[in-house]
Amino acid sequence: MKILDKYIIKNFLGTFGFIMLLLTVIVLVIDVQEKVPRIQNSGFTVSYFLIHYYPFYIVYLLVTFIAIIVFISVIFFTSKLANNTEIVAIISSGASFHRFARPYLMTSLFIATIFLSVSHFALPLANTKKNVLDAYTYSDANREKILGNVSITTQLSPNEYIFINNYNKKEKRGSGFSYQKYDKNKKLIYQISASDVSWQAKKNNFELDGYLEKTVLKNDAEILKDGAVRNISFGHPPEELFPDQLLGQNKTTPELIKFIAREREKGNGNLNTYLNELYQRTSMPVSIIILTFLALSLSSQKKRGGLGINLAIGIALAFIFVFSFEALKVVSENKTLTPLMAMWLPNMVFAPLAAFLYLKRANQ
Score class of each variant (00 low, 15 high):
218 K>C: 11
357 L>P: 02
340 L>R: 07
80 K>M: 13
335 K>W: 03
28 L>H: 10
312 A>R: 12
32 V>N: 02
279 Y>S: 15
8 I>D: 00
223 I>P: 04
254 P>S: 01
8 I>Y: 09
198 S>Y: 09
352 P>N: 15
234 F>K: 11
64 T>Y: 09
55 P>A: 04
153 T>P: 01
162 I>G: 00
264 R>E: 13
325 F>P: 02
49 F>Y: 11
36 V>Y: 04
92 S>T: 08
198 S>R: 06
176 G>V: 07
280 Q>R: 08
87 I>C: 04
320 I>F: 13
150 V>C: 04
147 L>V: 13
155 Q>R: 08
291 L>G: 01
144 E>D: 15
134 D>N: 09
329 K>V: 05
42 S>C: 11
341 M>R: 10
171 E>V: 06
304 R>T: 06
224 L>K: 04
174 G>L: 01
190 Y>P: 01
272 N>P: 06
229 V>E: 12
130 K>G: 06
331 V>P: 01
116 L>P: 05
78 T>R: 01
351 A>W: 05
41 N>I: 08
7 Y>N: 14
103 P>D: 15
110 F>P: 02
364 Q>R: 14
24 T>A: 07
72 I>S: 00
185 N>P: 00
82 A>L: 09
150 V>D: 13
218 K>S: 09
128 T>S: 10
182 Y>A: 02
50 L>C: 11
252 T>D: 07
139 S>I: 06
222 E>D: 14
289 I>G: 00
228 A>L: 08
224 L>D: 02
121 F>S: 02
290 I>G: 00
332 S>A: 10
68 I>V: 09
282 T>R: 06
182 Y>Q: 02
263 E>C: 05
247 L>E: 10
232 I>Y: 01
358 Y>S: 03
238 P>F: 04
29 V>L: 13
67 A>V: 01
195 S>T: 04
153 T>M: 12
363 N>V: 03
330 V>T: 13
48 Y>E: 14
250 N>T: 10
363 N>R: 13
125 L>W: 09
194 A>D: 07
10 K>M: 08
138 Y>R: 03
43 G>C: 14
69 I>V: 03
206 F>P: 00
297 S>R: 03
37 P>T: 15
125 L>G: 07
91 I>A: 08
292 T>Y: 10
355 A>W: 03
38 R>V: 08
321 F>N: 00
255 E>H: 01
153 T>A: 12
28 L>P: 05
358 Y>H: 02
185 N>L: 06
246 L>S: 08
347 N>L: 04
244 D>E: 10
361 R>K: 15
113 T>D: 14
87 I>W: 05
110 F>W: 09
223 I>K: 12
336 T>F: 15
129 K>F: 06
207 E>N: 12
35 K>I: 13
152 I>G: 00
267 G>K: 10
140 D>V: 08
70 V>Q: 00
